[in-house]
Measured scan of single mutants.
Amino acid sequence: VDNKFNKEQQNAFYEILHLPNLNEEQRNAFIQSLKDDPSQSANLLAEAKKLNDAQA
């Protein structure tokens, strides 16, 4: 993981990586967004979790 991520951002990265119901395309999009703007990690994680739950 890129060293410019802080602890919260790293946690978001790993959580998104391991959400079971996202397809690869969705997962990659969230990860790319996280890399583009790490400050949005909490929002991105919340969105990813919502999508993950919706696809459960």
Results as ranks from 00 to 15, higher is better:
30 F>D: 00
48 A>M: 01
33 S>E: 15
38 P>Y: 02
34 L>W: 06
43 N>R: 05
37 D>C: 07
1 V>I: 12
19 L>I: 02
7 K>Q: 12
48 A>E: 00
14 Y>I: 14
27 R>P: 00
8 E>Q: 05
52 N>A: 06
55 Q>F: 09
4 K>P: 08
24 E>M: 10
27 R>G: 02
56 A>F: 06
2 D>G: 02
3 N>S: 05
38 P>F: 04
50 K>C: 14
8 E>S: 05
52 N>S: 06
31 I>T: 12
53 D>T: 12
34 L>N: 00
13 F>D: 01
37 D>N: 09
44 L>W: 03
21 N>I: 03
32 Q>W: 07
7 K>S: 04
51 L>P: 00
41 S>W: 14
43 N>F: 15
16 I>Q: 00
50 K>Q: 13
19 L>R: 00
50 K>G: 10
7 K>H: 08
31 I>V: 04
49 K>H: 03
34 L>P: 00
10 Q>H: 03
49 K>T: 11
49 K>D: 03
32 Q>N: 14
33 S>N: 12
34 L>Q: 03
2 D>K: 02
7 K>W: 04
6 N>C: 07
13 F>N: 03
20 P>K: 05
32 Q>G: 14
17 L>F: 07
48 A>F: 01
6 N>R: 01
35 K>V: 11
5 F>E: 14
19 L>T: 01
22 L>F: 02
32 Q>L: 07
44 L>G: 01
45 L>R: 08
33 S>Q: 10
44 L>A: 02
35 K>L: 14
12 A>D: 07
20 P>I: 07
32 Q>Y: 05
7 K>F: 02
51 L>D: 02
54 A>G: 11
15 E>K: 05
24 E>F: 07
6 N>L: 05
11 N>D: 14
3 N>P: 15
34 L>M: 07
1 V>F: 06
22 L>A: 00
28 N>E: 15
44 L>C: 07
2 D>L: 01
47 E>K: 10
27 R>Q: 06
49 K>F: 06
2 D>N: 02
6 N>K: 01
28 N>Q: 12
31 I>S: 02
41 S>K: 02
42 A>S: 08
12 A>I: 10
48 A>G: 02
26 Q>L: 03
8 E>L: 02
37 D>G: 08
32 Q>E: 13
31 I>F: 06
13 F>H: 08
40 Q>W: 08
55 Q>R: 08
49 K>V: 13
9 Q>F: 08
17 L>D: 05
52 N>D: 11
54 A>M: 13
32 Q>D: 13
23 N>Y: 03
23 N>M: 13
2 D>S: 02
12 A>L: 04
19 L>K: 01
50 K>Y: 13
34 L>K: 00
46 A>E: 10
31 I>C: 03
10 Q>A: 08
47 E>I: 12
33 S>M: 13
41 S>C: 13
53 D>C: 12
6 N>A: 07
52 N>M: 03
27 R>N: 01
26 Q>G: 01
45 L>T: 06
26 Q>C: 09
35 K>P: 01
21 N>F: 10
22 L>R: 00
39 S>I: 10
52 N>R: 02
11 N>H: 14
23 N>E: 07
36 D>R: 13
45 L>A: 04
8 E>N: 03
26 Q>H: 05
30 F>P: 00
41 S>E: 02
7 K>A: 04
16 I>H: 00
21 N>A: 13
42 A>Q: 09
54 A>H: 13
42 A>H: 14
3 N>Q: 08
38 P>M: 04
52 N>K: 02
32 Q>H: 14
8 E>I: 02
39 S>Y: 13
2 D>F: 01
1 V>H: 10
14 Y>V: 09
16 I>F: 02
16 I>C: 01
31 I>D: 01
34 L>I: 06
11 N>G: 06
56 A>H: 12
32 Q>R: 07
23 N>Q: 10
45 L>Y: 08
20 P>G: 12
12 A>G: 03
53 D>I: 09
8 E>M: 02
9 Q>H: 03
10 Q>E: 13
1 V>S: 12
45 L>S: 05
53 D>N: 11
22 L>W: 00
24 E>I: 10
53 D>A: 15
15 E>A: 06
14 Y>L: 11
11 N>Y: 14
39 S>K: 08
19 L>G: 00
38 P>D: 03
18 H>L: 12
11 N>W: 09
52 N>F: 01
11 N>A: 12
4 K>E: 15
45 L>K: 04
39 S>G: 14
1 V>E: 15
40 Q>F: 07
54 A>N: 13
19 L>F: 03
30 F>W: 02
33 S>W: 09
34 L>R: 00
18 H>D: 09
48 A>T: 01
24 E>A: 05
51 L>K: 08
10 Q>W: 15
6 N>W: 02
47 E>L: 08
16 I>N: 00
16 I>K: 00
22 L>S: 00
46 A>V: 12
51 L>W: 08
20 P>W: 02
32 Q>C: 15
26 Q>I: 10
25 E>C: 13
43 N>C: 09
14 Y>K: 09
10 Q>I: 08
10 Q>M: 15
2 D>Y: 00
4 K>V: 08
19 L>W: 02
48 A>C: 04
52 N>C: 04
6 N>E: 15
19 L>Y: 08
47 E>P: 00
45 L>C: 06
23 N>G: 10
37 D>E: 09
41 S>T: 08
40 Q>E: 10
30 F>L: 14
6 N>F: 02
22 L>Q: 00
29 A>V: 14
21 N>D: 10
30 F>Q: 01
25 E>D: 14
53 D>M: 11
23 N>C: 14
36 D>Y: 05
25 E>K: 08
30 F>Y: 10
28 N>V: 04
14 Y>P: 01
54 A>R: 13
2 D>E: 05
34 L>E: 00
21 N>M: 09
25 E>R: 14
36 D>V: 13
33 S>V: 10
46 A>P: 02
40 Q>N: 07
37 D>Q: 11
33 S>C: 12
4 K>S: 09
13 F>S: 04
18 H>W: 14
33 S>F: 10
28 N>L: 14
56 A>E: 14
38 P>Q: 05
1 V>K: 11
43 N>H: 13
40 Q>I: 10
50 K>M: 11
6 N>G: 15
3 N>D: 15
6 N>Q: 06
15 E>I: 02
46 A>W: 06
14 Y>G: 06
15 E>Q: 09
11 N>C: 14
31 I>G: 04
8 E>F: 02
39 S>N: 13
3 N>I: 04
28 N>G: 05
43 N>Y: 13
42 A>K: 06
34 L>A: 12
18 H>A: 14
12 A>N: 07
17 L>H: 06
38 P>W: 03
53 D>G: 11
2 D>V: 01
28 N>M: 11
27 R>E: 01
19 L>N: 01
39 S>W: 07
22 L>I: 14
38 P>E: 04
49 K>Y: 07
52 N>P: 01
21 N>P: 00
29 A>P: 02
18 H>S: 14
19 L>C: 05
45 L>N: 02
22 L>H: 00
47 E>V: 12
54 A>D: 10
20 P>R: 07
13 F>K: 07
51 L>H: 06
21 N>Y: 11
27 R>S: 03
10 Q>Y: 06
9 Q>E: 08
18 H>V: 07
51 L>F: 06
16 I>L: 10
20 P>Q: 10
8 E>H: 04
35 K>F: 15
13 F>I: 06
23 N>H: 11
12 A>F: 03
7 K>E: 10
28 N>C: 14
11 N>M: 15
6 N>T: 06
12 A>R: 03
7 K>T: 14
45 L>V: 08
9 Q>L: 13
14 Y>T: 12
41 S>V: 12
5 F>M: 15
46 A>Y: 09
4 K>F: 13
15 E>C: 13
20 P>H: 08
47 E>R: 04
25 E>N: 15
12 A>K: 02
22 L>T: 00
5 F>L: 11
26 Q>T: 06
34 L>Y: 03
37 D>A: 02
48 A>N: 00
7 K>G: 13
18 H>N: 05
37 D>K: 08
14 Y>S: 08
